[in-house]
Amino acid sequence: MSVSANDNASKASMRGFLAKYSVLIAFAAIVIFFSVASPTFLTPANLFNVLVNNVVMLAIVALGLTIVISSGGIDLSVGVSVDMASMIFVMLLAAGYSGVVGVAGGLGAALIVGILNAILITRLNISPFLATLGVLFIGQSTQQLATSGGQPIYLTSGYAADQFNAIARTALFGIPTPVIVLIVLAVVVHLLLHRSVFGRYVQAMGAQPGVAWYSGIRVPRELSMVHVLCALLAGVTGILLSATVKSYVPLSGNAFLLDAIGATFIGTTLSRERKPSVIGTLLGVLLLAIVKNGLLLVGWNFYWQQVGIGVLVFLVLAASFGLRRAAH
């Protein structure tokens, strides 16, 4: 408001351009750097490995968080959704149930977490941060109690388990199955968030909840849907995780939280309006995965990787918020 509108708009769009391309340029620089630094980085085998092991599961969780963050909320309990789906899935398979029952049970467990979040947020008017924080506490306790303090459950044998493991590790037309799952989910979430009526309502709630309510939008219902969808997507990751490692390791889902939030916010810096978007989030996940993998290949150990990722997320947040502040 302080400068003339024209001037302001052009400056803002220039900054938008800068923000957009600075991340892309950084992205390209990182890829080039690692290709030079490590001969194995750009090999198909390595990229395949990155895609399957570092991208797919994180990306699916991040898709869910993208929906929640678009609605103006946050879900700190995505890890719980991952874990609960993983736990029930593995328990059912271990008890000899078929794969269909296992998947249904796992998704059902995630659904319950989502519904719990939705009730706390829309019925009891608890802020998303506190509600999902509380669910995070309770979810951790539940897992510890169910596994006598965090003992992993392994799927030693059994038809269903092997079948799932096989699916997780095979490819369809040369594309790994988990990647196909991701592509399908990404397309669905993209259409939902950016093309559907529901997505428009989500954006409106995120931009100004009062306006959404005054426009006749059923805010509580839409918000419940947002949290249920997020939990379900995290549940899919939980099942993929268990199918891949043939086990359930308690409290392992929390590792996704920071990376998924980071990826979503990297994505917002890429979008013109600085809003979360599916494509942005996927690029964010890819960036994080490539940096992690590259750091590993050039010899950084796991601990330094964590520092590196933290610094990267910090810098992206700084760029995103700093530019937003400068634009106002």
């Binding site: 920071l258 980071g262 330094w304 964590q306 520092v307 990722i309 610094v311 910090f314 947040l317 700093g322």
Partner: peptide
């Protein structure tokens, strides 16, 4: 200084600090 939401800023710093401790 940068106007980052405290929730996000301190979450990123959490990772840096934890990583440095492990290192």
């Amino acid at each position: 200084g940068l106007g980052i939401l405290p929730l996000l800023a301190t979450l990123a710093v959490l990772n840096v600090a934890a990583g440095m401790e492990l290192t």
